[in-house]
Simulated assay, not measured.
Amino acid sequence: MSTAPEWFKSSYSGSEGGNCLEVAYVRPESAAPSTTVHVRDSKNPDGPVFTVTPAAWTSFTAYAAGN
């Protein structure tokens, strides 16, 4: 059983609102590493959620950062 996601915005997000993504890592109740990464639109927290593996998220963020 997993705990509820704890959503957070990127440290690059400004405080004036706008277009932001929120990310949540879902960890099993044990101390095991995260098993899924969830992404959602901060303006629509009840809307759709994009879910990927931690490896896919790491690849995406490295690509987005230009590494």
Rank of each mutant, 00 (worst) to 15 (best):
P33D: 13
S30R: 06
S13V: 04
N19V: 13
G47V: 09
A4E: 15
F60K: 00
E29I: 08
S2E: 08
A32V: 06
E16D: 13
V37A: 03
R40N: 03
W7I: 10
Y25K: 14
A64L: 12
V52A: 13
E22L: 06
S15C: 00
A32E: 15
A55L: 13
A4Q: 14
R40V: 02
K9W: 01
E22H: 09
Y12G: 02
T3H: 11
P5I: 12
P45L: 03
Y63R: 12
E6K: 06
T53G: 10
A56F: 04
W57F: 15
T61G: 04
G17R: 14
G17L: 06
L21Y: 09
S13K: 04
A62F: 04
P5D: 13
T58R: 15
T51V: 15
T3I: 05
T36K: 05
H38V: 03
F8Q: 13
K43Q: 12
F50D: 05
A4C: 00
T35Q: 03
A4D: 15
T61V: 15
N19I: 13
A62R: 13
V39S: 08
A65W: 00
P54I: 08
S42G: 02
C20N: 11
P5L: 10
A24W: 05
R40D: 06
A62I: 00
P5S: 11
R40T: 01
T58I: 01
R27H: 14
E16T: 10
G18H: 02
P28W: 00
A4T: 12
G18I: 02
N19F: 07
E6Q: 13
S42Q: 01
V49Y: 07
G18A: 00
V39M: 11
P45C: 03
R40Q: 08
Y12P: 01
R40C: 06
P28V: 03
K43T: 09
T36G: 10
F50L: 15
S34K: 07
A4F: 03
P28D: 11
S10V: 05
S13R: 03
P54F: 06
G17K: 10
P28F: 01
V52S: 12
P45I: 02
N19R: 13
P33H: 05
S10N: 14
A65T: 07
G14C: 04
F8C: 09
D41Q: 07
S59P: 00
V49M: 05
A32S: 15
P54V: 07
T53N: 04
E16K: 03
A31R: 14
T51R: 12
S13F: 07
V26R: 15
C20Q: 10
S11Q: 11
T36A: 14
Y25N: 10
S59H: 09
S42F: 02
S59V: 08
V26M: 14
